[in-house]
Amino acid sequence: MEKKREIRITEVALRDGSHAIRHQFTVDQVTKIARGLDEAKVPVIEVSHGDGLGGSSLQYGLSLTNEMELIEVAASVVNHSKIAVLLLPGIGTMPELKQAANLGAKMARIATHVTEADVSPQHIALAKELGMETVGFLMMSHMVPTTKLVEQAKLMESYGADCVYVVDSAGALLPHEVRERIRALTNELTVEVGFHAHNNLSLAMANTLVAIEEGATRIDGSIRCLGAGAGNTQTEVLVSVLDRMGVHTGVDHYKLMDVAEDLVAPVLEKPQEITKDSLVLGYAGVYSSFLLHTRKAAERFGLDPRDILIELGRQKIVGGQEDMIVDVAADIAKQRNITEKV
């Protein structure tokens, strides 16, 4: 008999989705959605500011509700699901991780730019010490060749991560590139391999299925595509597709559809779609959370957001450098003025 494959789903809407609604989650929304996800038996629910613990800032957007309060309420309503938090060393700090663990977070996802894994050993070690399941999260994985990705993933494994994720923060990876990366990691690592997609090029589902085919066992999704840019792999769709494929997730997909329709859809200002600017995020390889900040800067300087994104991609700007959006927009506007005057 064929061995039954199992995939562990992490729902990221209450973290990645924070970007899409300018970090305006309320206690009420998080309570209801976390309870719904728990009833649908989603194994892991991530709750944090979009940029992880400590992300509430003028640089990324101030949270309407303190994330610690959101973590606490989410942890208080779940029976089945584990609450995860994201932490980017350089933004979040160890005291914040301890606080989140005290409030009931049971999983820590420690994220670095794909070439900078060596800023994470202290945070990974602390998470383990706190008894948390620990994930290494290599962001902007499209920016380096597979050999580099493997090297950095091995570092995270050596620090004690229980799993390492290939994170396609820009939604820029093509299916064959996902295949090559996941294949290499499943060959080279002894810990589990995960995959996090963005749907900017409408490839989130296809890439996720390729990742699973190559042996990834942890997959991120955002319900109703409530994530940065054009959102992530749509969780309720993924669960249904995997069910059809005979892949076990343990999630009640019927209930999950209800959560998507009744609780998550009303949170979105408008339905997630691939707009011209979110498409260009994927095309130019830009961090998905830059979307709304870029729209604002484009308006301010009278520019097409796509021109700003293309330039950000050309300059190889990494996640967290939101201040560069205004900087680049101002430069483009200056050049145009000079050209117009001539």
Partner: peptide, 10 residues
Amino acid sequence: GKAIIILNPA
């Protein structure tokens, strides 16, 4: 006060 540090490998 708050401080953030970003490393860019370009």
